[in-house]
Every structure is written in structure tokens, then in C-alpha cells.
Amino acid sequence: MKHSFLDQYSDRDSPLHRLDPRSKLVATLAFIIAVVLTPVDSWPAYGMYLVLLAVLIVLSRVPPLYILRRSLVIVPFVLLVAVLIPFFKGGEVAGSYNIGMWNISVSQSGLQIFWNILARAWLSIISLSILAATTRFASLLEGLERLRFPRVLVMLLSFMYRYIFILTDEVMRMKQARDSRSFGGKWRWQIKTVGNMVGTLFLRSYERGERVYAAMVARGFDGHSRTLERLRFGRRDALFAAGLSLALVAINLFNLLY
């Protein structure tokens, strides 16, 4: 079955695609840290971050609309977390409403924080989308491993990436099997069916886990994951990470003086 892949466009070619994943990982992390640490009221700095990302997107030759679409995924989550802040943060009142017996007021600084959280989250997710769209998942994992990210976590991620599509297929098949025998029925009955399906999926995944482990053991696995060193961290990679970090520092210095 067809699925939209997590790392779509990552098999294309561009200056960004050719970089060592370690360089991109470090640069992305630096970017996110910088964004998170930028003061709330420094809107010019946020503008410049966006420009920086735009330059990267152009360099990566990934369709900007694709990155935009991916990045919007974060909005509902942020809204859920941040939507109440304007109502509870004290300070200068931006507006107040009377709804029945409640008096609800929205504070100026609360609103600013709200927009700020949204902007930070959005910029961070754009940078991550660029990373994912320019790096194959396998090299991303390799990069993480070489950066001394815990091996167990890298293996976990790798299994998740490998099996998520197989599990999706399994769910789709179960759904088809249910739908071809299901003729409505009470709401409670349908919920129960879904519950059974979740249970079955769990058991099947568990059994698959055992078979996969047997296949690993049969090829000499002894609990230590080993991989070949295939990455080459070259001058260009160092240049990219350093250049991006410098740009971030420059943005913040400019912001300080401004």
C-alpha cells in the first residue's frame, strides 16, 4: 500500500542534501535553541530567523509549499497548550468581555506571549521539516549515532521507522476486514470492535517483535548494535554548521543593539 513517507524529497540532490547529517543536526539544534532563547519582544529577530529559513529552503530545492504544509501540523498542538495564556497572564488589559456572570479579560502581555509561543514553535518545526526533507532517515539515524546519541534510542527510532508502515498496512487490512462484515450497529458495539482491533494489533506487534529478534539473533546479534562508519565530515559540513551558528549569533547581536 502507498503511504506518504516521512522523509519525502530526501532523496533529491542539493547543497543541503549533500551535507553530512551531523552538520545539519547540530545546525538545526543550534537554530532551535537560538529561537527559544530569543526574548519575547524581539520581533525583528524572529523576522530574520524566517528569512534565514527561507534561504535554506531555496538552497534545498524542496518545494516551499511542502515545507509550509508540514510545518502547519504543529499549530493545533500549540493552540491547545497556549490558548489559555492570554486569559490568565496579568498585566495591561487588552480587552474584556462579559459573558453571563463571568468577566473575562485578555492581557496585552499574555497575547504577546501567545503569539510568541506560536512563532517559536512554527520556526522550530520549519527547521525540522527542512532537516527531514533534506536528509534520508537512515543517514539521520547514522548522524545521531555518531553524535553519541544513546544507541538504544537510535535502534528504537530505526525500528519505528522500519515497522510503522507495516503496522499501518496491518491496521488497514483489519479495517477492511471489519468494514466488509460490519453493518452499522450500536455505537457501543463499534467502540468495542475498535478496542478488540487495538488489542489484536498489540499482540501481533508483540509476536512480530519476537520473530524480528530471532532473525537478529540468528545473524549473531548479542545486544550490541554495531554499524559501519560511512559518514565523512568534510570542510563544507564544518563550514555550514559554523556559518549558520554565526548567522544566529549575528541576528542576536543585531537584536541587542537595535
Binding site: R162, A215, R219, G220, R226
Partner: peptide, 30 residues
């Protein structure tokens, strides 16, 4: 285990790495 090579029935159980290379290299590396 290096002398007796076992190929399992379901290739989706046997192939657990992100790339073909990693999977084929898994045994030799171990």
C-alpha cells in the same frame, strides 16, 4: 550462527534495518 544461515519465512521480520545495505551488513558486522 555464522556457520548455519537461517532465512525466515516472512522477509518483513528478517529485514529490520532502514536500508538494504544495513540489513545485509548486519551479520558480517556482528
Amino acid at each position: 550462527r555464522s556457520r548455519v544461515g537461517l532465512v525466515f519465512q516472512n522477509p518483513d521480520d528478517q529485514l529490520f534495518s532502514p536500508t538494504v545495505f544495513d540489513d545485509v551488513a548486519f551479520g558480517p558486522i556482528n
